[in-house]
Design a protein around this nucleic acid. Structure first.
Lengths: 348, 348
DNA sequence: CGTAGACATGACTGCGCAATCATACAGGAC
DNA sequence: GTCCTGTATGATTGCGCAGTCATGTCTACG
């Protein structure tokens, strides 16, 4: 932490003792002021803050962590990709973490790296984070991973052994169900599903929501096509589906795949939404501007991360207080122009 | 850092002394082994590693940082958004940071927050990072920000006072120039530009590249339309441009705006690319699948971050060694179907 | 008016590790 | 054999802060 100034450079960074000396108090009192502890007179507080300001003093986090046993940092395990969903989660978490006065450490897992989550977690724990957020985990068949700090799992059921596990379910399942029901209510006999990779919990959630909706409406359950989230995989799936004239509605597990799928339909001479309706998932920024504008489902990233982190921090700071149940977030289906009633009769 | 076990819980986490005791050596020797320092016999090394393994020992990073003055962590200042560009930079950085054996701390700036970069930097410096990466900075008119660790600036010229400043230019300007030239070479008399917000260096870079290309070809320089990166702003700009029949080619500063712009053209009854050609920037995942598939420019995120970080780490660890010049990254223009020669005569 | 409590401050200590210095023993040069 | 250099290890110390306890001052109240 000591920044070794090269000869002739700026003075060394000040310590709390320096502040104390300048303010005419003890080092401990400086610590009191900076930590907002009680029993400091207004006068002394003022002097200390002024002195700190004058010296440009910043507390040494390593020393704080060592002395107090807390780093005031939260680690995030995220997918090492720029996919809209994971990236949005991460940014939501950053905002929320900062709001509660913590700092953020990030470890990315790499798709296909076995033990990726476990090693990312190990790296974070080694850094001494006070809590961990796991964003949209994928199933690695690792079984129970054991962690000695509280864990917040976003968008998936917990499979971690930890002092406390908090979950913030997005209700992706409910959202998927709403998307499917939207299509059924337009009059489609059934709805096909272009699923995400089933190693992802969020992909399984969406599939389950789709299935529920079909069952509730007594609709047939057509075979599932699985993609890998990419528009390319959506395109491939779309070519396959285009050869089946009975398909009139598809719910894709994300917008990228939906867009690829639509392109395949157009190339096959089928119009969207006249011949086939498509619903996506995520509401990526361009969803409203592609052709046709995409009906999709929007996830409340900010609200979910904020709520989840508030819980996590409470668990970290007051492990014994009872947790309030997480409030459900509102479902938001954004209806645009990629969905319509089915054509009068299936295309032969 | 001390994880206080609640009564009846697992034993406290082991310290290096515990490892030392088990291995029958001194604490310092454990430190030597774990830091790969010389002058340790193979036998002792083995015993220490075994003992550490047996106890599940992990070094306390706070203590290491305090004792050594280095955190072995790199801080990143990034835009708090899920925009494709910033998110891709961040993930590229994560991979690169891990490859060089450091860990990552993230601070996001908030658009519109005055002093955002400065406060994000302050937060990171307070955490004691050994180096800082600033990704696609925006101009806050803050003037010189002073930092006491080496800085890597991605995609922009440096405006920081720091012991060492490294830049990894993406060559966005060159890429923008290539995009514009592509249109000119198709026969367009000139190319309009839908710029990004000019507070962003990367937006200014792209504008400059566009301007250079026009000058080099002796083409007229039409007025610039400025968007805010969003598809919505591209759409708005597109409506404006659509009323001008002389516009036959547009270079948009990112793909989202290009997609919004294309949608506005279609709604105005102009065909892309027959009536008007559009080039984007970024090659977002869906760019190949929108209608028409988007001609765009791809940034070499991974190569640039990897090279830049290698330099940054070298500067951190060996401040006195001369830096090799950064190699230029290859320009990649991805030609798809949104560009074509201009229509025979301007639409009246 | 003496004492219990609230308030305000400081002295001292220790967090877990790496840096520094000291020590000990090899083997080679002379 | 003595001296040296290179190798291998340990003892001690200190990084900069917060925790603990001691101490002092001021009010309130019987």
């Amino acid at each position: 932490m000591t920044r070794l100034a090269r000869p002739g450079e700026s003075p060394p960074t000040p310590r709390s003792v320096d502040v104390a000396r300048l303010a005419g108090v003890s080092q401990k009192t400086v610590s009191r002021v900076l930590n907002d502890e009680p029993y400091v007179s207004a006068d002394v507080r003022r002097r200390v803050l002024d002195a700190a300001e004058e010296l440009g003093y910043r507390r040494n986090q390593a020393a704080r962590a060592l002395a107090s046993g807390r780093t005031r940092s939260i680690g995030v395990v995220t997918l090492g990709s720029a996919l809209y969903g994971p990236a949005s989660w991460l940014m939501g978490i950053e905002r929320a973490v900062r709001e509660v006065g913590y700092t953020l450490r990030v470890a990315a897992t790499i798709e296909g790296d076995p033990g990726g989550i476990a090693s990312a977690l190990a790296s974070l724990l080694g850094q001494g984070v006070d809590g961990v957020v796991i964003s949209e985990p994928i199933d690695e068949g690792v079984g129970l991973i054991s962690v000695d700090v509280p864990v917040l799992v976003l968008g998936a059921p917990p499979t971690f052994a930890a002092p406390q596990v908090v979950t913030a379910r997005v209700g992706a399942g409910r959202l998927a169900r709403a998307a499917t029901e939207h299509l059924l209510e337009l009059g489609h006999a059934t709805v096909h599903h272009l699923a995400g990779p089933q190693r992802w919990y969020s992909a399984r959630d969406r599939l389950a929501g789709w299935r529920e909706a079909l069952r509730a409406h007594g609709a047939d359950e057509p075979p599932v096509v699985e993609g890998d989230w990419s528009a390319a995989s959506g395109y491939a799936a779309g070519r396959e589906l285009a050869s089946d004239g009975t398909v009139t509605a598809v719910f894709a597990a994300n917008d990228d795949m939906a867009i690829g799928l639509i392109r395949a339909q157009l190339e096959a001479g089928r119009r969207v939404p006249e011949d086939i309706s498509v619903v996506g998932f995520d509401d990526i920024p361009v969803a409203a501007y592609v052709t046709p504008p995409l009906t999709t489902v929007r996830q409340p990233f900010d609200e979910v991360t904020r709520q989840g982190l508030a819980l996590l921090v409470q668990v970290i700071e007051k492990p014994d207080v009872e947790l309030p149940p997480a409030a459900d977030q509102p479902v938001e289906l954004v209806v645009r122009a990629s969905t319509a009633p089915p054509p009068p009769r299936p295309i032969p």
